[in-house]
Every structure is written in C-alpha cells, then in structure tokens.
Design a protein around this nucleic acid. Structure first.
Lengths: 226, 226
DNA sequence: GTGTTTTTGTACTATATTGCATATAAATCA
DNA sequence: TGATTTATATGCAATATAGTACAAAAACAC
C-alpha cells in the first residue's frame, strides 16, 4: 500500500496498466539491441506490453521515447561511475571498478552482448538528428568529467604526478571505455576486454609495461541498470 | 564473366551507365550519414543515379550493398594505416600520422562530421546482423594488428621498452582511434580531437606527462577515401 | 538492316510502418 | 447508481519501403 507521503490520491480515471519505469526499461532494451531506426513501434508495443495509443499518451512518439530512454541511461551511467570512482579505493582500482561495472552492463549474463546503449545506438543517429547528437555529446562529456574529477583528486593526493593533465587523461580513460563498448558489441570476449581495461588503467596510472592485474573475476555486481 | 586478363572486349549488350566504384562510394556516403537501417533504397537510388533494378543487378539487395561498402571501407582504412605506419617516421610521429589521417576521414572539409563509417554504422547493426558483426570484428582486429605490427617493430628497435606489450598497446592505440571516431560524430572540434590523439600517443610512447605536440596543422592530405 | 544480349526506366505489388479515430473498460466523484 | 474521467483495445488510413515484372533502349554479331 504505497499511499505514502508522495503519491496521495489516485488521479481520477482508469488506472494505468503499466509501470512507467519498467516500460521505459523494456523500450530501452529493444532500442539497445536494434537501434533507433531499426526498431518499430510494434516491437516497442510488444516489449512494453503497451499498445500504440498508450505508448503515445505516455511517452510521445518514437523519437521522444528514444530520447527519454537515452537520457535515463546516461544518467544511470553517470551515477554508476560516480559510485565506482568514490575515494574508498585507490585510483587504479577505482578505474578498474568503472570498467568492470561497464562490462557488466555491456555483457549481460543472459542474452547477447550489446555494448553501450549510448555508443551503440546514438552514434549512428547523431548526424541526422540534432537532439540525439546533443544528448550523445552531453553524455560523452559527462563521463569525461566524472573521470576528470577523480583524476584531479588523485593528483592532489599524489597518486598521479604533478605534471599529469587530468583533463587529457580523462579523455584517455573515456577512450578505453568507448573501445570496450564497441568491442563488446562486436563480440569480443570478456577476458579480452578486461585485459584491455587493465592495460589502459596501468598506462593511465603510469605503470607502463608492468602487469599489475589485481584480480580478474571481480565483476563487481552492481546491478544491470534495469 | 570476367574472362579477361584485364578488360579487353566490351561485354555484349547495352553498356552500363554507371561507374561501379563511384556508385559504391556514393552508396557508402549515404550509409555513412544515416546508417544502414536509416537509409532507404530510394536514397541509394538517388545518390548513385542508378534506379532500383540496376542497383539490384549490380550489387544485390540493400544488405549485400551495405556489406560491400563496409568491406571496401575497412580495406581502404587498412591500407591508409599501413602507409601511415611505415617506418620512415619514428613511432610517435607515425601514430600521430594515423590519427591525423583518420581525422581527415572523420571530419570532411565539406559537410557534416561523420566519424568512422565502420564504427558509426556497423556497430548498431552488429547485434541483429551476424554478417555485419563479423565484418566489424574483422575490421577492428585488422586495425589492431596494423598497430601491433608497428609497435613490435618499435620495440625491436628500442623505441619502446623491452617489457612493453605490443598487443595490449595496440589495443590502446585502437581505443584512441575508436574514441576519435565516436567523438567526431558527436560533434567534437578538430582541435579537441587532436589534443586527445596527441595525449594518447604520448601515453603509448611513454612520455607520460610531457606535451610534445610536434605540429598541429599537419592534416596529411591523404585523400578522402572517395 | 535484323536479331541477340544486357542494361535501363517505369510501373506495380505486397508488406510494413507511423500515427490516429473511435469504441470499450476501469476507476473516482456526486 | 449514474456521470465523469482517464486508460486501454481494436482497427483504420496514409504513407513508405523493399523487391520485381516488363517493356523500351543501347550496344554488338551477323
């Protein structure tokens, strides 16, 4: 009985048969697999269990629905990054925690590897669609900034040399993430992806040729973002 | 039947009104902008100047046509990389030449920034389409190998430390490329992209915090791949 | 020239897709 | 209970799209 402080009285007419968050997650999953242009309203209708008029009423047209799922995904990714990059771990391990968390999203235990929803589906639309392009650019910048903040802190605490350049290192850290997203969707193995992540972390943190690899099975269960 | 040693006699019937290479380049440009699913046969017909039946006769259906343009792009990229990575320049400059060449493709002087054709358009199709996925995986591997070969050589010649790991460094070098491709399509400025490339090269080559940047306007005119 | 071969150009079919109109269902309010 | 409100369900219309049939055109062979 969620009468709660928040959602007092029931609106008035017939109650909705769907859960908004769940429907958005279902729609996102269809877009995630087949892309924006490759997804039809029938597929979205089937996946969400909502018929077309209800979809329109709830989320607007296909374009608005896609943008909503994209923005929610980007925000969920930002939150996951902020958590993974918290200062309870040294830089090297924090970065690895980001990549492990990303791989958990990119390679679902059940079903095909999908990579990153944003990178996999928004990039292709970005040229013809200014709104998608803005969301993509914003998302990329958001993740850059998350890395950058943690790298600046690491520098302040002496984990990185004083002459390091956090903004540039952040772009490199993001580049590793972009590459994992892409390679995951291309079908690369988890082991291969993680090896790349480990090598990237080592390079960013200055352990050039070394092979540190703290642990390999540590997939940091952090939820599938569903 | 390509009887031929080269192209002696004219085939027999009515001559083709199109140039095959040109038509494929035109089709590729449409796919490059709008993606596979986002491109209609009418657009392809208009762009190539060929009507639908001619398109089918020449290149098969839309799917076969896309795969052909994708494979040609991948091979052209491989050739460009091999040239850029030739041993007439030290590693650092050779890598930068690759990235400058890539930016020339990703940011055409005329028209919108499109990023990488493979990364921008094949990634989204890769989940539902096994053939595209195979082409994408092959393309990624091809570029990894091109970097790896040059990095091994650099190591043999002492440009890289003996304990460096060329296969992993190659994946990082590719990651920089992937990121440039993505960011270009998202609208990032050329200057920003090049700064990232320079930082990546420095990291790979071991000049961690330094700011080497040999030159900035050197766009290495290497043709637009058209 | 006449016939053969191959390509082009037009038109067509079948299907898919988006978006909406209209009727029905499920709740609240009086 | 009956009116009102909101959501669902069915179905429809307009358009778009992929792929093909068929006739006209442009070359060569004789």
């Amino acid at each position: 009985m969620p009468t709660s402080t928040k959602k007092e009285v029931r609106p008035r007419g017939r109650p909705r048969a769907y859960d908004s968050d769940q429907a958005l997650a279902d729609a996102r999953d269809v877009f995630w697999r087949s892309g924006y242009a490759g997804t039809s309203l029938d597929q979205l209708s089937t996946a969400t269990g909502m018929n077309r008029p209800s979809l329109y009423g709830a989320f607007g047209d296909k374009h608005a629905l896609y943008l909503t799922t994209l923005e929610r995904y980007i925000e969920a990714g930002r939150l996951a990054m902020v958590h993974a990059l918290s200062e309870d771990l040294p830089l090297q391990q924090a970065l690895l925690r980001v990549y492990d968390g990303a791989l958990a999203w990119y390679l679902p235990a059940d079903g095909d590897p999908l990579g990153c929803f944003m990178i996999g589906t928004a990039a292709v639309e970005a040229v013809d669609d200014a709104e998608v392009r803005a969301a993509l650019a914003g998302g990329l910048r958001t993740y850059d900034k998350a890395f950058e903040k943690r790298l600046k802190l690491a520098q302040a605490e002496g984990e990185l040399p004083a002459d390091a350049q956090p903004p540039l290192l952040a772009k490199i850290a993001s580049a590793i993430l972009h590459s994992l997203a892409l390679r995951a969707r291309a079908g690369d193995s988890r082991a291969s992806l993680r090896a790349t992540a480990v090598a990237g972390v080592a390079l960013i943190c200055g352990n050039a040729g070394a092979s540190p690899a703290p642990a390999t099975g540590k997939t940091t269960a952090k939820g599938r973002g569903r």
